[in-house]
Each structure stands twice: as C-alpha cells, then as structure tokens.
C-alpha cells in the first residue's frame, strides 16, 4: 500500500463518497421522520401489505412495520441502499483501475518506485474505505434519527440495526471485490463497466426475481445478494455468522486475486 497514492486518490474520490454518504444519511433520516406517523397505524398498513400479492411484499421486504428497524430495513436497506451501493461499487472500481489503464495515466504511477501489487492494493483500499465511509455515515445517521425522531417512544433494537449495517458493508465488500477484479483485468474502461455492471445487477435481479414466488426461489441460490436479507436480520432468524463469513471470504479472495493478476498481466500502456 502506498500512502501518497492513497491520499491522492481519496482526495479525488472524496466528493463522490460524501455525496453518496450524505444522500444516504438524508434518506435514512427521512424514513425515521416518517416512522412515527406510520408506527401509530401499523395494523392498517399490515392489512394493506397483506392485500398485495405475496411475492411483491417479500421481494421488496414489505413485512412487519411493527418496529422502527423493521420499517427501515423494508424501506431502505431492502432496495434503495442496495441499488446505491451497487452503483458505487461498479462505477468506482472501474475508475480506480480500468480507467487509468485505458487512459494511460497508470503508466505514470508505475513509472515511480512502487510495485503494481502496491498500486492495486491501494486502489482496492480506496474502494473499501469509500464503502466504509458511506456505511459509517449511514449508520450514524440512523442513530441520530433514532435519538431525534423516535426519542425512546418507539422500539428500536440497536444491535440488530448494527448487524444490518455490517451485513450491508460485507455484501458490498464482496460485490466491490468482484467488480474490482473485473476492473483489474480490463484494458477498456467501458468494457469493465459493462461486465461488472452486468454481474452486479445480474446477481441483484436473480435475487429480486427469486423472491417473487416459490417457483423462482431457486434463482436466489445463484446470487450473492441472497446472503444479505435485512428483513431476516431484523427478525433475528438467520445464521449471520455463516453468511457474513461467506461474504467476507468472497471479498477477500476477489481483491486478492485482483492484486495478484494485475501484477502478472501485460498492460498496454
């Protein structure tokens, strides 16, 4: 890892990170603000959800508005945050390696006394730091929202909320790893963006479609997104240790492979 490069890259991408982080924080606060008005009418809303086709409710995590964290998991962690972080992973991983190779500016980095492994590792770390920042700000905003809008009047399970955030981070550690691996192997920025976008949103769609009905359930087993189920985390009936470990391993292996293969390959600089 190269501290000078890391600082430079953070400077370049900090604005993007902060835009996403504050966007996310704002959204989660909005949902906390909305909850009290819904929390009072839980029964009515449950009736409404029950009236919808079963698959739809499951696909978008519209189940159980009984607690604040359940409401938030359904309204935010089930869909919007996932899409947001998927975009961050695909875009940023492409910019961090494939774009520099495609443009040719990677030549400048590699002409200085550093190794390719260090450059790749540093760029990977920038991506992970970015994800960590976005999730960190989101989590903190969640606590702020709880203190501010719910003020103890409503149930809020702090440890489950944290688990849900850690899970989201790990899911995108894995997704980011795969996208970064694609980026490290590409000479063409557009191709890298296309392939990692296809993989990421392909996984996402498999998971989403899989949730619609029992007949499509099998599709989910092909998607890493099925390893993160915010609704289930809130209900507490899922083996977090296993899914979290698998996600962490997928991420570590992908990033590791990316660094290793980037070191060995021919670069058209």
């Amino acid at each position: 890892m190269n501290a000078i490069l890391f600082r430079q890259m953070m400077k370049v991408h900090m604005k993007t990170f902060m835009n996403y982080a504050f966007g996310s924080a704002f959204y989660i606060l909005l949902i906390f603000w909305l909850y009290p008005s819904i929390g009072k009418n839980v029964d009515a809303i449950d009736v409404l959800v029950d009236a919808m086709p079963e698959g739809v409710g499951r696909a978008f995590g519209l189940s159980g508005f009984g607690t604040a964290e359940a409401f938030i998991s359904g309204e935010y962690y089930g869909l919007i945050l996932i899409l947001l972080l998927a975009i961050v992973c695909v875009q940023l991983s492409t910019q961090l390696v494939a774009k520099l190779v495609d443009q040719g500016s990677m030549a400048y980095l590699l002409s200085t006394p550093t190794t390719r492994a260090k450059v790749a590792l540093t760029q990977a770390l920038v991506l992970v730091t970015g994800l960590f920042l976005i999730m960190g700000v989101t989590t903190l905003a969640g606590f702020a929202g709880n203190a501010w809008f719910l003020a103890g009047d409503y149930e809020f399970n702090t440890s489950r909320f944290i688990e849900m955030n850690v899970g989201a981070f790990l899911l995108f550690f894995a997704v980011g790893g795969i996208a970064f691996l694609v980026s490290s192997l590409s000479n063409d920025e557009k191709k890298a963006l296309g392939i990692s976008g296809f993989i990421t949103f392909g996984f996402f769609s498999l998971d989403l479609v899989g949730k619609f009905s029992d007949k499509t359930e099998w599709m989910r087993s092909f998607s890493i997104f099925s390893l993160y189920q915010p609704g289930e985390i809130i209900n507490g009936n899922v083996n977090l240790g296993l899914s979290f470990t698998i996600l962490a391993v997928i991420g570590l292996v992908s990033f590791g492979l990316a660094v290793l293969l980037f070191r060995k390959r021919d670069l058209p600089l």
Partner: peptide, 21 residues
C-alpha cells in the same frame, strides 16, 4: 525488480494522459 528499477528511471509516455481534475 519492480519497485526498485523505477527509482533509476524517468519516463515520458508516448500518449500523454493525466489524472482527472
């Protein structure tokens, strides 16, 4: 010997591309 060689070398690429911004 990546990482050591470059300390001895200055390089001007044929196609100039810098970082954004």
């Amino acid at each position: 010997d990546q990482g050591k060689v470059q300390a001895l070398v200055g390089y001007l690429p044929g196609e100039i591309a810098f970082f954004d911004g």
